[in-house]
């Protein structure tokens, strides 16, 4: 049993890294634009399909295809932001938070359903990054998962470096703390919003491209990660990138252990999907600031 739990934890760790990549994107968008992006899961789905078509139509090898998928997800997000989110920055818009919720929710409905028409209903699977599996004693993990976790860690590391060490990152950070002060020191806040929404989308897209060979791609694949990412972002403290990385891994591992330890096996898998949602609800009720967050219970 102990061995089974250890193996389960390792599996959860890998999934947790992917969750963290998705959630980090959501966090960037939240901290700069002050909106919750309800279409984040759909950008993740689009990233998966971008990866697939870049490989199958342009013949680009799987690993470089991740970067192309990221770039395309970035462009798609920027286009959506330019077309639909600009009222968020206008002083005449009333109740901006409602606007943000409804518009991103509308984008999610639109993308999920247009995907069926564009990509067809059948699940598609891009080729593996590396075939075969890592076997150590009783522990088995496909190289695709190992690679996805490694790439996820690398992407998260780059993101932390980017936000902390570059002037771009510092500019974004400044805008996230105060729009007005950032404007005073000469930071172009409009550009910061566009960059942040694009960057967040690029991370969702990267996660989609990474899981492509692990799970098959379907138009509705974004629904589940979307709510999971909310749970992570809330647990990690809205707006904290480091917090959401830790929370992502925490949720991944505890979700795996939940299935392993759930007393009734005929229900364990079903309720696993509700697990992160329950965490989300409890955190919102008991500690709305999350584990590592600032106070953010109301948004102005």
């Amino acid at each position: 049993m102990a061995e089974y739990l250890l193996i389960q934890s390792l599996n959860g760790l890998v999934i947790g890294v992917i969750y963290a990549v998705i959630a980090a994107g959501l966090t960037i968008i939240f901290s700069i634009l002050k909106i919750v992006n309800f279409a984040h899961g759909e950008i993740y789905m689009m990233g998966g399909y971008f990866g697939y078509f870049v490989i199958s139509m342009l013949g680009i090898p799987p690993i470089p295809a991740i970067f192309v998928a990221m770039a395309l997800a970035f462009l798609l997000s920027v286009a959506l932001e330019r077309a639909l989110l600009t009222p968020l920055y206008s002083p005449t818009t009333e109740r901006k938070s409602d606007y943000g919720i409804l518009v991103t929710f509308g984008i999610s409905i639109f993308l999920r359903n247009i995907a069926i028409i564009l990509f067809g209903p059948f699940p598609l699977r891009p080729p593996s990054f590396f075939s075969g599996a890592l076997v150590v004693g009783d522990f088995v993990m496909t190289w695709d998962r190992v690679f996805a976790a490694g790439a996820g860690v690398a992407l998260l590391g780059l993101l932390v470096l980017f936000l902390g060490r570059t002037s771009w990152g510092q500019a974004l950070n400044a805008v996230s703390q105060s729009r007005e002060s950032a404007a005073i020191v000469g930071i172009n806040d409009r550009l910061a919003y566009t960059m942040a929404f694009g960057l967040g989308g690029a991370f969702a897209g990267a996660a989609g491209a990474l899981v492509g060979p692990i799970y098959a791609l379907t138009p509705s694949m974004g629904l589940q990660p979307d709510t999971q990412a909310f749970a992570i972002v809330v647990l990690g403290g809205m707006g904290s990138v480091g917090g959401s990385i830790i929370a992502g891994i925490l949720i991944g591992v505890s979700e795996s252990l939940f299935i392993a330890l759930f007393p009734d096996p005929s229900r364990g898998l079903s309720y696993a999907q509700a697990f992160s949602l329950l965490v989300l609800m409890v955190v919102l009720l008991v500690r709305p600031t999350g584990l590592f967050g600032r106070t953010h219970t109301a948004m102005e």
Binding site: S97, I101, F230, L280, M281, T297
Partner: peptide, 14 residues
């Protein structure tokens, strides 16, 4: 204690 998008997320999870 919850408002705005937090409430939207909470109710969606519920």
């Amino acid at each position: 204690r919850i408002r705005g998008p937090y409430l939207a997320i909470f109710t969606m999870a519920f």
